[in-house]
Simulated assay, not measured.
Amino acid sequence: MPSHKQIRVILLKNKTVPIDKYESECKCRAFEPVFIPLIKHTHVTEDFKGVLDSIPNYLETINYIIITSQRTVESLNESIIPTLTSQQKSTLFSKTVYTVGPATADFIKRSGFLDIRGGRDAGNGSVLADMIINDLTSDTVTQPLNELLFLVGEIRRDIIPKKLFEKGIKVREVVTYKTENLDDNFVRFKNVVKSQDEDERSLNWVVVFSPQGTKEITQYLSVKDHLLNARIRIASIGPTTKKYLDENNIASDVVSPKPDSKSLLDAIESYKRQ
C-alpha cells in the first residue's frame, strides 16, 4: 500500500498499452500515477483507403509523412497496415516520417518505419513545422517534393499545414481516427479528488494533456476553494494546453517543456524543491 505522503499524479489521459511511459516514470520516482480517461478513440480507415484507391500509385508519389499522435500509429497498426499488400507496406515504411515527441517517435519506430525525424527535438507542432521547412527547402534535398501526407485525427489544429502552406509546401490531410468525450468524466475525476481528501495526502498533481473532455473539470478547478481543499497542483503539457487553462482562469504550476514523461516529472520535481 502506498504511504499517505506519497504524491499522487492524476493523468487526464487514456493509458497507453502495452507500456505507458508516464506510468513507468512516475513509479521510478515514487509517485503514484492515476489515469482518468476522458475520450474514446475510433479508427477511421475510409479516408486512407480512399486516397490509395483514387490516386494511382499514391504511396510511390510521396516521400514524406507527418504523424503527431500515437492514436494515428495505433490506427495504422491495427486497421490500415493489415489491409495493405506486402509491396505497399514496404513502400510505406520507407518514407521519411516527421513526428512530435519521443514517445510517438518510439511508437512509430516499433511499427516498422525506418527514417523518423523530429521526435525529441520537436516538442510541439510549430517547432516540427519549422524543422520540416528547414529540411525541405534546403539545397541538399534530392527527393522530389510532390506533397506531404499528414495523418491526423478528426479534431486537430492547423499550425503545421498553415506554416507549410505559407512556404509553398502542399499537405494532404487524411483522417485516421476520431475521438468522442466519455459521458462521466467529471464524476470520475471528482471521485478521485474526494478520495485524496480522505487520504489526507500532502500534495496531488493534475496533469492536463489536452482541452478535449475537460470542460466540467476545468470549471471545477477554476474554483480556488476546491484547489485549496484538495491540495491540488496543476501541470500542463505544452504551451497550447497552458493557454487553454489560462483562458479558464487556471494557473499552471508547471508547464512541461516537452510532451514526454521525463520532462513532465522533471518539472514537477523542480517545483517540489522550490
Rank of each mutant, 00 (worst) to 15 (best):
A230Q: 08
R188A: 02
K194T: 15
D197T: 08
V193W: 01
G213S: 05
F209D: 06
V207K: 15
K224M: 04
V206K: 09
K190R: 07
K215M: 06
N229H: 09
V187F: 08
I217H: 05
V192K: 08
S236Y: 06
D199C: 09
I237Y: 13
R188M: 00
G213N: 04
V193P: 00
I232K: 02
S236A: 13
A235L: 12
V187W: 02
G238R: 12
L203M: 13
E200Q: 15
S195V: 03
T214I: 06
I217D: 00
R201Y: 10
V206T: 00
P239R: 05
Y220I: 03
K194G: 10
I234C: 09
V187T: 09
E200S: 11
D199G: 08
F189Y: 12
V192M: 08
V192T: 09
L221Y: 01
R201P: 06
S236R: 06
D199V: 03
R233Y: 12
W205E: 07
A230V: 00
T214C: 09
G213I: 00
R233H: 14
Q196I: 13
N204L: 05
T240N: 12
T241D: 14
V208L: 15
S202V: 02
K224I: 05
Q219P: 04
H226V: 02
K190W: 04
G238T: 14
V207I: 14
G238I: 09
S222F: 08
N229I: 01
E200H: 11
V223I: 11
I232D: 01
T241C: 15
T241V: 14
L221S: 03
D199I: 10
W205P: 12
S222M: 13
V187C: 10
K194W: 06
D225V: 05
R231P: 11
W205V: 05
V193E: 02
V193S: 11
S222Q: 15
S236Q: 07
I232P: 03
S202R: 10
S236I: 04
K194Q: 15
R231V: 05
N229Y: 00
L227K: 06
I234Q: 12
E200A: 11
D225T: 05
K194E: 15
R231Q: 10
R201A: 11
I217W: 09
F189K: 04
G238V: 12
V187A: 12
V206W: 00
T218A: 10
S202C: 08
K215N: 08
Q219G: 08
I237V: 15
S195W: 01
T218M: 08
V206P: 06
V193H: 01
L203F: 10
R188F: 00
Q196C: 14
A230L: 03
E200N: 13
L228W: 04
